[in-house]
Design a protein around this nucleic acid. Structure first.
Length: 281
DNA sequence: GAAGTGGTTTAACGAGCCCT
DNA sequence: AGGGCTCGTTAAACCACTTC
């Protein structure tokens, strides 16, 4: 999709890009050919020359796996186009915390999924390893991570996550699927089994319970919930990409919807019942 | 070459929304 | 419940191109 993208070039917005597509200029290679059928370019010679001068840099960035070039230059509502090109180096990330509001909050667990393997990080054990591990990826995929997860991580670890970042909250909203993560999953017909109805507030309660009891089953239930979130992100990213693709001339290049990854952690129904009884009845 | 047009960019602001 | 970020909107300025 990036090779069909022109709206990241200076002076070319979505309208001009659509005109190029309509004129049969569909790829970067087409941009270097003679004028399209009809004899004239839907963009002036100055902007055409600028775009042409940037083609090599774009090709190099694509080959080198540098997603940041496109992330920087694409309009925010078009950053979904990055996904298939850098999917092999994507990290689906979600954090759980002790809550929000009092300023003393900290991260309790982090889940990182790369489409193959799940990694988890726990406060007081291996949480700091996350900073080194995440640096290996070129693309972050989160839900509301631009507003919550990434600022929280950067504050807590005093670091900067400078990867390209697809925040599915905004991407899905622009595709007509709004709401929180659980609502989005529900709209797409996804189910979480035992963890249906469990939300971020439960993660706060589960951590509180774990700190009080040091019961590993409680911790595993929290991690299972955390991991379930990141596994779902891959499916949501592919779905969001396909929804946006349908609005372009390239709808035939849909991505296959990935099978849900295997969650190596299991939520305990006994633990969930305990939390339910204690806090919700 | 001047005027007009359409498109893009930029900045400021506020609202909305989702996270735990 | 609070925090915080992004996005959308709007308006103005700018740019490139077209038309005469």
């Amino acid at each position: 999709m990036l090779e069909n993208t022109f709206c990241h070039f200076p002076g070319i917005g979505l309208k001009t890009e659509a005109k190029l597509w309509n004129a049969g200029v569909l790829t970067w290679d087409d941009l270097e050919k003679d004028a399209p059928a009809g004899g004239s370019w839907p963009v002036g010679p100055g902007r055409l020359a600028t775009a042409r001068s940037l083609l090599d840099a774009c090709r190099t960035a694509l080959d080198a796996g540098d997603a940041r070039v496109f992330y920087r230059d694409l309009p925010p509502q078009e950053q979904w186009r990055i996904f298939p090109h850098f999917r092999h180096s994507a990290a689906y990330v979600d954090i759980e915390t002790t809550g929000t509001g009092c300023g003393m909050d900290h991260i309790t667990t982090i889940a990182l999924y790369d489409g193959r393997e799940v990694k988890t990080y726990v406060h007081g054990r291996n949480l700091e390893d996350f900073v080194d591990d995440i640096a290996a990826y070129d693309l972050l995929v989160t839900f509301n991570g631009k507003c919550f997860d990434v600022p929280f991580i950067e504050r807590e670890f005093n670091c900067t996550l400078d990867q390209a970042h697809i925040d599915l909250r905004f991407v899905l909203k622009a595709a007509g699927i709004g709401g929180g993560l659980k609502k989005v999953e529900h709209q797409l017909g996804l189910s979480r089994g035992d963890l249906d109805g469990v939300d971020g507030y439960w993660a706060v309660l589960l951590w509180k319970e774990f700190e009080a009891t040091r019961d590993e089953t409680v911790l595993e239930t929290l991690i299972a919930y955390n991991v379930e979130d990141v596994i779902a992100l891959e499916l949501l990213a592919a779905t969001a990409f396909n929804l946006h693709l349908e609005r372009t001339p390239f709808a035939h290049r849909r991505l296959d919807t990935p099978l849900p990854g295997l969650n190596p952690f299991a939520a305990s129904t006994a633990v969930l019942d305990t939390i339910r009884r204690r806090y919700f009845y």
